[in-house]
Structures are given as C-alpha cells and as structure tokens.
C-alpha cells in the first residue's frame, strides 16, 4: 500500500529551454573558447605599441568580416547562457535552492544583457 505521494509539480516547465541553451553553449565553449583565450589573451596583446597596433589591425580585419561576426555572436552568446545556467545551479547546490526561481533573473538576465551588448558591439564593427 502506497503511503501517499509528495505533491510534485504537474506542469512542464521552461527548464527545457534554459537547458537547451546551456547544452549548446557547452559545446561551443568547449570547442572555441580555449582558442579564443589563446588568441586574445596571449597572442594578440603585446607591450610593444607597434605589435599591439598590428594585433589590433588583424583583430579588426577578422571581426569586421561578417562570417566571423556570426560565429562570435553564436559562440559568445551560447557560452554566456551556458555559464549563466551553470552558475545558477552551482549557487543552488551551495544552499540557495530555495532561490531557484529568483536566481534566473540575474543569471539568465545577465546572459541576455551580454548578448544585447555583444550584438550592438558587433553591429558597430
């Protein structure tokens, strides 16, 4: 004899949507972001003004090409949502489980803001 069920929610939730962005972002981040870091963190920066100027030129040439813009938009946006989702769940794991709903606002909101900002930036290049 079953001794009563817990009152679990009965509706499908939007978690599927966030998870899909998280998952796609995970792939993008895994494949592209280490190379991005190598490029913009180590290869292009330079203490030498001439080298830095040349680096900036290359970067501008690349980022000005629309296929690269699209890749940047896709990779960075999805990676942001990947991070947002993971950060939200990490915060839940360390004791903010009751704030699960509220945390969506700063986490996914932040990723959305980043996306808008990035889109404007790319538009302007």
């Amino acid at each position: 004899m079953s001794r009563g069920k817990s009152g679990r929610p009965t509706r499908p939730s939007g978690e599927a949507f966030w998870w899909a962005l998280f998952s796609a972002g995970g792939v993008m981040a895994a494949i592209f972001v280490p190379a991005f870091i190598l490029a913009t963190g180590f290869l292009l920066p330079s203490g030498d003004p001439a080298a830095a100027a040349e680096g900036a030129q290359r970067l501008a040439a690349l980022a000005g090409w629309w296929p690269v813009k699209l890749v940047l938009l896709g990779v960075i946006t999805l990676s942001l949502f990947h991070c947002a989702h993971r950060i939200r769940h990490t915060l839940m794991d360390v004791g903010m489980r009751r704030l699960a709903g509220f945390l969506k606002l700063p986490c996914y909101g932040g990723a959305l803001a980043g996306t808008v900002w990035l889109a404007l930036v790319l538009w302007g290049i």
């Binding site: 830095a52 100027a53 900002w117 990035l118 930036v121």
Partner: peptide
C-alpha cells in the same frame, strides 16, 4: 572578450591601447 571587441568597434587605436593593457 566583449570589451575587446567593443574597443575594436571604437577604433584601431583604442583596440591597440587595450591590447597593450592586456599584456
């Protein structure tokens, strides 16, 4: 990274300055 791209959007001089800072 977005900041870096934003500097590129401002201009190559700003980007060069930023890349120098990142070194």
């Amino acid at each position: 990274l977005i900041v870096t791209l934003a500097k590129v959007g401002v201009g190559e001089a700003a980007a060069a300055e930023w890349l120098q800072a990142l070194s």
